[in-house]
């Protein structure tokens, strides 16, 4: 953990986001809060729809304004609340101080501009470089992300490249101005497994070289184990557990986390001499329009108690660096603010 200081680079406090849809108001995020430290990789895990992408998009204020709406929250960066910034000040942050890469590189790059031009745009916008200089720098960035023959690649259009290469281009674009924070929203989900490993390693290496903090969003616990130092588990728009990665995987506290870990198939696992069946978390994620009262996981939880169905637990700090939102551990902890 070299280079890891406890300096807080980004603070998310009390973030709530709703979406106004035909069927009603959906609470996508409910008072989400966490800290991001300098030089660390924070993983955010959860199933589809749990709000992990919405969290990242909210940090950069990219939530589409109808139908989405940030109803409360503060995002503290460099001493300022990003929620209060003017649009132009926010634009200075995006791509320069805080960058984001997305899940689908195929559709996330503009089809009518070359790869080089798209990277150059970042240089021209934030560093004021002239076109030729910006293009030269783009070639340098392509080298950094290990794209072969960067000079030629610069003049290619996205449709001419493979998925893995396109994702590297996105990374190059995002890191062009040496941002302090990189938000990675499931960057490898759409890629082949072998390419996934390459891209993840690339991100790891770049993070070390450039000393930035990364928030890595994924639904894959295996990836989380590989890349992050601390993990946040989200469920239905809330954080249900937060812990250093090893602690999370070895001794999870929240039943949902336990369920996620259990449902990973293990090669060769046998029960009474027969191949073990896949373990699943019973039930389904509740619809955001029709959430149960009390703890949102209560309908699926193995250890559910009456209290769970009546009142929703708060996110409590159970031990240093370990938070959990569950009545099972409640007595041991203090409320985390």
């Amino acid at each position: 953990m070299t280079g890891l200081t406890m300096e807080t680079i980004l603070q998310v406090k009390n973030l709530s986001v709703i979406f106004n849809t035909f069927e009603g108001k959906i609470l996508a995020l409910d008072r989400v809060g966490f800290d991001l430290f300098a030089g660390e990789t924070l993983g955010i895990v959860g199933e589809s729809g749990c709000g992990k992408s919405v969290t990242a998009l909210s940090i950069l204020r990219l939530i589409a304004s109808p139908p989405g709406e940030v109803t409360s929250g503060q995002i503290i960066y460099a001493g300022k609340d990003l929620m209060t910034l003017s649009p132009s000040a926010m634009r200075d942050i995006r791509g320069e101080k805080i960058s984001m890469i997305f899940q689908e590189p195929a559709t996330s790059l503009s089809p009518v501009f070359t790869v080089g031009e798209q990277i150059a745009e970042v240089f021209r916008q934030h560093l004021g470089l002239k076109r030729r200089e910006a293009l030269e720098q783009s070639v340098e960035m392509l080298k950094k992300v290990n794209i072969p023959e960067p000079q030629m690649a610069c003049r290619c259009y996205p449709y001419e490249m493979s998925g893995g290469m396109r994702q590297r281009v996105m990374i190059a674009m995002a890191l062009a101005c040496n941002p302090k924070v990189l938000l990675a929203d499931e960057p490898t989900t759409a890629l082949d497994v072998t390419i996934q490993a390459q891209v993840i390693d690339l991100i790891k290496q770049l993070q070390q070289d450039m000393g930035m903090s990364v928030i890595y969003i994924t639904h894959d616990l295996g990836v989380v184990a590989h890349i992050s130092m601390r993990v946040i588990v989200m469920y239905v728009g809330r954080i249900v557990e937060e812990a250093p990665v090893m602690d999370l995987l070895m001794s999870p506290m929240h039943p949902y986390t336990q369920g996620l870990i259990d449902s990973i198939p293990k090669l060769g696992e046998k029960i009474r001499g027969k191949k073990a069946p896949l373990k699943e978390i019973k039930g389904m994620v509740p619809s955001l329009l029709n959430l149960p009262p009390g703890c949102k996981f209560s309908e699926r939880c193995r250890h559910v108690m009456d209290l769970c169905r009546q009142r929703e637990p708060e996110l409590m700090q159970i031990a240093p660096g370990r938070l959990c939102r569950c009545w099972l551990h409640h007595s041991k902890g203090e409320n985390s603010t």
Binding site: L62, T107, S110, V112, Q125, M170, M173
Partner: peptide, 27 residues
Amino acid sequence: LGSDFVRTARAKGLSEYKVIYKHALKD
């Protein structure tokens, strides 16, 4: 305007003008 690449353009910190005319309209 609802597409991924426009979202990326915004995430790069481009001005709204560039996002609309340079990226969305050109496509």
